[in-house]
Nucleic acid binder design. Structure first.
Length: 108
DNA sequence: AGCCTGACTCGGA
DNA sequence: CTCCGAGCCAGGC
């Protein structure tokens, strides 16, 4: 389990600047298919600030609710600073900004 | 052990 | 687009 978290964090750290990834995608990359919730849980207890958790969004390209309560404006600002554009509905067009593992290693 | 909750996702209606 | 149900799984009580 500890090992699973380590892999999740490692996967998140691989997300290149200017891209975002979904929880499910991170789970797959980390070798934990179908463990999207575990990814969310891992982030909830995260204390390591070297992990760019702000690049992890839900399947709809939105910043997940729990984060909204305390970092939404900040997270959005960081992402926009990295070049990510939010749509009028406040979502990220995954078509354009979703990280493709092939960009930095093996394909999914 | 059982039950509930939660930074999730996906298919179907 | 929204709502539901089902899968998943760690933690707290």
């Amino acid at each position: 389990v500890k090992d699973a978290y380590a892999r999740i964090y490692a996967a998140i750290r691989r997300i290149p600047k200017g891209k975002v990834a979904t929880y499910g995608q991170i789970a797959r990359v980390a070798g934990l298919p179908r463990r999207a919730r575990l990814v969310g849980y891992a982030l909830s207890i995260l204390e390591d600030k070297s992990v760019p958790w702000q690049r992890v969004v839900n399947a709809s390209g939105e910043i997940s609710m729990r984060a909204l309560s305390f970092t939404m404006p900040e997270q959005r600002a960081i992402l926009e600073d990295e070049g990510i554009v939010f749509s009028a509905s406040g979502r990220i067009p995954l078509k354009r900004f979703q990280w493709r593992v092939s960009d930095s290693g093996r394909p999914e």
